[in-house]
Design a protein around this nucleic acid. Structure first.
Lengths: 229, 229
DNA sequence: GTCTATACAGAGATAGAC
DNA sequence: GTCTATCTCTGTATAGAC
């Protein structure tokens, strides 16, 4: 969709639109590449080629590689917030996070969400192969991760029985940590265990069973204490 | 095991010993660096400096960076096999894998084991920031991971009630996958969630509870079916 | 076997014409 | 705003003296 230059009239809006489109093209190309190749594996040259724009344009829109990735993460986080705006219990969360890994349903598991999962791995602090300890990308990601975590805790809290959350206020946090660990763990598994291909739907169910078992345990204890009074 | 030629004196054993020591120094330096900096983050120059040997010596002992890391993984795998030779149930496995992450007890969680965990992340196939798809290091790691997985399944099987494994033979595999996912997930968590520092001992216990709950569920079903006959 | 110097490639980033 | 040419730095790997 390129566009001829014009010298007079209403070029302002057009130029602005062209610039915006270029920016989006660059971000889109970066997203595609980063999901596949990671942070270090995504070169600015490759972004330039994939976007169809020369390297100079990439650096015109983004100060450097770090800023490009910060912008990319922000874009992905915006998408995440839209997608995860509704209520979401443990089972649904695990289903999305684990079963979605098969990549069967792109509606359920967007490229943007895949990138955020991948970023979790880049951010491994003792793993500078990804992001440097003091990287702005890392800082941006950790901020987002913290926010996503809090949002998850809120939604998990809402999905739990009232007596459980009353008696054990910390249980929602614990369950969120567990479900996050499980989805991250299966992400690693999904991408490294080439031979053994798992039925992720089945494991999502198993994981949900396991966590629901924990909830049931807490509920039982809450009920018992209630009786003793 | 290469060997210098010599014509006199008892330098033979000495030279051999020196060569072996150099090799070990290089591997040791690579281990220290790789655990912290990852595959790409560990440069041959850094290995050279840390080992105290010049870059030429590093390349004399190892053909290239890939072969160095293959050798390193093999070393770590040997250590793993020694450490994990005894029986190991679900709870113990999770305790080692999750509680060990705090790094409190180096006896329980060796540098070698930490490297194998880190390698799981490097091997992410869609994450070439770590290892290339066709990397020999990646192939070596996946082979080891498969072997470790099978060993885990054997030990988990031994730790389960006999009636459960008889009725549901696949349950040991499922539990092994779940525990692997949990340990990998907590590894990611441990290294990225800087603000929220978790009590990993507590979460190891919670994870064990969750999986034991699953076992109990299978046991109940096995018992019920037994009765109905 | 050990070491120094260096070749070579790839990646991030900039200059400056258009 | 867009593009080409190029600089610089870093990292892998090799050549060859000792």
């Amino acid at each position: 969709m390129k566009q001829g230059t014009r010298q007079d009239g209403d070029t302002r809006g057009t130029r602005q639109a062209r610039s915006d489109r270029s920016r989006e093209q660059i971000l889109g190309a970066a997203l595609d590449l980063a999901v596949v190749h990671g942070y270090q594996g995504t070169t600015m040259a490759a972004v330039s080629t994939a976007s169809g724009l020369p390297i100079g344009s990439v650096y015109w829109h983004f100060k450097n590689k770090e800023q490009l990735f910060v912008a990319l993460l922000e874009h992905c986080y915006e998408v995440w917030k839209e997608v995860h705006s509704g209520p979401e219990g443990l089972r649904r969360k695990l289903s999305r996070g684990i079963a979605g890994l098969s990549g069967a349903d792109p509606e359920q598991y967007t490229k943007e969400e895949a990138l955020l999962k991948a970023a979790a791995v880049w951010a491994l602090s003792r793993q500078l192969g990804g992001l440097a300890e003091d990287s702005e990308v890392r800082a941006a990601y950790l901020r987002m991760r913290a926010e996503m975590f809090r949002a998850d805790v809120r939604r998990i809290t809402e999905s739990l029985p009232a007596d459980v959350t009353r008696r054990f206020p910390e249980v929602a946090t614990k369950l969120t940590v567990m479900s996050l660990a499980l989805t991250d763990g299966f992400y690693v598994h999904a991408n490294s265990e080439v031979h053994l291909d798992l039925d992720f739907g089945e494991y999502a169910d198993l994981a949900a069973q396991a966590l629901e078992g924990l909830v049931a345990g807490f509920a039982r204890r809450a009920a018992e204490e209630e009786q003793q009074r």
